[in-house]
């Protein structure tokens, strides 16, 4: 029973989606839109599972004292800070004791982690007392400080300036730099391709060189290089793309059908 219901659900919903593709009527569209909405909502609940997994793995690393465990504190503090910024809002002109509250909470998390990791009863007691003290401090600040408040929502979305600052000055630079690393990586990958000594790799390399040099005006015969690379992009490239797309399309269609009919069950585990 436990095993059969999920596969029955897969079949029912899969079949419905195929059916609705051919039925343009409002009723079928109505259920289709509902289903897509549901999936988005379930996804957000799943995110909670993800955060829990990240938290658990970090805590586990600290507890076992694995190499690099101290960096797990960085993850946890980053996680906590962004969560705190995401669920609080400045209510007055200044921030008041907000940053003190942040520090107290962050320190409390670190103390709790130390408590979990400590082996002797003495150090357990010490970290426990410290965590409790920091927690009481944080609660007191939260109760008596009027400069900020929990939970907020405005028409513009998240409006805590610290939340935006963290996005602009912490997430964006790292994200953009990771992306920029690709320039070095693509150069090193090209070098790797240069060393390959078989026909297929040489074909790949030649085509890559031709297309790479299409904008280079200093090459002899630059005009012909540009023409040749255009031809490469428009003719053989188009042919191969079409062949791959047809193949992938059939692969997707075949696998999706196997999933709907319950032939492919590898994704659901057994137990």
């Amino acid at each position: 029973m436990r095993r059969q219901i999920p596969f029955a659900l897969v079949f029912i919903f899969g079949f419905f989606m195929i059916f609705q593709f051919f039925v343009p009527h409002e009723t079928s569209e109505f259920f289709y839109e509902f289903l897509l909405d549901w999936i988005i909502v379930i996804g957000i609940f799943a995110l909670a599972l993800g955060i829990w997994s990240l938290f658990k793995v970090s805590v586990e690393k600290i507890k076992l004292g694995k190499e690099g465990a101290q960096y797990s504190y960085v993850t946890l503090v980053g996680l906590f800070l962004m969560m705190a910024f995401g669920f609080t809002q400045k209510t007055g002109e200044g921030w008041g004791l907000y940053f003190l509250w942040i520090v107290l909470c962050g320190a409390c998390i670190v103390a709790l982690m130390r408590l979990r990791a400590s082996a002797s009863a003495g150090s357990k007691r010490m970290w426990g007392m410290m965590a409790l003290g920091l927690l009481i401090g944080a609660v007191l600040v939260a109760i008596f400080d009027d400069a900020w408040a929990f939970y907020f929502y405005t028409q513009e979305g998240l409006s805590n300036s610290m939340f935006r600052d963290f996005f602009d000055y912490i997430m964006m630079p790292i994200l953009a730099t990771m992306f920029a690393l690709l320039a070095f990586y693509i150069a090193s990958a090209a070098y790797r391709a240069f060393r390959a000594r078989n026909l297929l790799a040489s074909l790949l390399l030649l085509a890559a060189l031709l297309v790479m040099s299409r904008f280079n005006p200093f090459l002899p015969g630059a005009e012909y290089v540009a023409k040749a690379s255009n031809w490469l992009m428009n003719v053989p490239n188009m042919a191969a793309q079409r062949a791959i797309v047809i193949g992938i399309g059939l692969g997707i269609v075949g696998t999706a059908l196997k999933v709907i009919l319950g032939i492919e069950r590898g994704y659901m585990g057994k137990g």
Partner: peptide, 12 residues
């Protein structure tokens, strides 16, 4: 923990 979540941000 064999299968664990990292983050839903591509480059992170």
């Amino acid at each position: 923990d064999i299968v664990h979540f990292v983050t839903q941000s591509q480059f992170a």
